[in-house]
Design a protein around this nucleic acid. Structure first.
Lengths: 174, 174
DNA sequence: CACAGTTGCTTCGAATCCGAAGCACATCAC
DNA sequence: GTGATGTGCTTCGGATTCGAAGCAACTGTG
């Protein structure tokens, strides 16, 4: 950051690094707690929590994938893992033979309930402890805006201009 | 499902989810850009950037690991990968035979320089675009506080005051 | 109805990650 | 010195991730 880069200013860099570091640290801590308390990975917890929050306790694979940030294949893997442990069931949808409906089981809800208190505790201790009430509100507001913007921004806007991919053009190598 | 349990309030949950989602989305986007522009993973970029920022362009493995959030073994893996591509060199430290000093090469700096503009562009488009100047300042301040707190909080404090367990659930096989 | 294009999910291979165990050097007693 | 500990890094095995390719079921057009 002491480099002569005419791009981001110190504040922006600070925000960026703080965001990445804080989320990484938090995620690691949460992951560890989940592993110890219920032998769950973070994704697995997210899936169970999402399902537990759903009206019927079930969702289509695709809708689940949209809620979480992970890939479809990764979701398949985790869903299978959860199914093996009887925390969810997977059944073909009735109106569309292709889609799979994932449903949380009582056992799944039990694990969720067992893990939740510790999860909250970690968040309180690590994330919320050093923040005031208004800090949290502000944080929620700003990050929600950023998230919403990223969600609706075309995933490919990263590289400025690029249309069709004609051939093995050694893409933008400077 | 907003159960009647003494959990987090809506604002806290919102902040938590927004933090996780925003950082995940951003990281994915950045990762993709880095991959396309310089065939670097996010960790590799972080390592190169950290080294590039260092006075002599070099650091001990351990110090590097502290800067990044990843594990020692993961760092070893990535350092080896970078070394194979001649983006860094690794030499035993002179005063301590055990430690390894990692140094960025000119080639490494070149890759860094090639990748940087696109990196900035992604950040501008995805993270900073929907935020005002003061938003960024506030965000940086709050997250920096959270991060610093997490860094100095003992790693094992996951479940501090929570010793009660739901019946004689056989603990994990150790 | 037949066909082409979509959509939903899974399988496959490769890359990456972590924790535990192991190895080698350092440091601290005595 | 010499052994007991500690520190720095790597190796090992296993888990998790992704993208690309594949399969099966839907949809739209004539």
């Amino acid at each position: 950051m002491t480099s002569p880069r005419p791009s981001l200013d110190a504040t922006q860099l600070g925000a960026y690094f703080a965001l990445i570091e804080a989320s990484s640290l938090l995620k690691h801590a949460v992951e560890q707690q989940l592993r110890e308390a219920g032998d769950l990975s973070y994704v697995q917890f997210q899936l169970l929590a999402t399902l537990g929050d759903s009206p019927a306790g079930s969702q289509r694979m695709t809708d689940l994938a949209d809620g979480v940030v992970y890939s479809r294949s990764g979701l398949t893997y985790q869903a299978q893992t959860l199914e093996k442990r009887d925390l969810v069931t997977r059944t073909p949808s009735s109106d569309d033979e292709r889609s799979t409906t994932v449903t949380i089981t009582d056992e799944g809800r039990a694990v969720l309930a067992r893990v939740f208190p510790g999860h909250i505790a970690v968040l309180d201790d690590l994330l919320f402890a050093p923040l005031s009430r208004s800090d949290v509100e502000t944080l929620a507001d700003i990050l929600a805006r950023a998230r919403d913007h990223m969600r609706q921004t075309p995933p490919r806007s990263a590289a400025p201009r690029r249309s069709k991919k004609p051939a093995g053009t050694t893409d933008q190598a400077r």
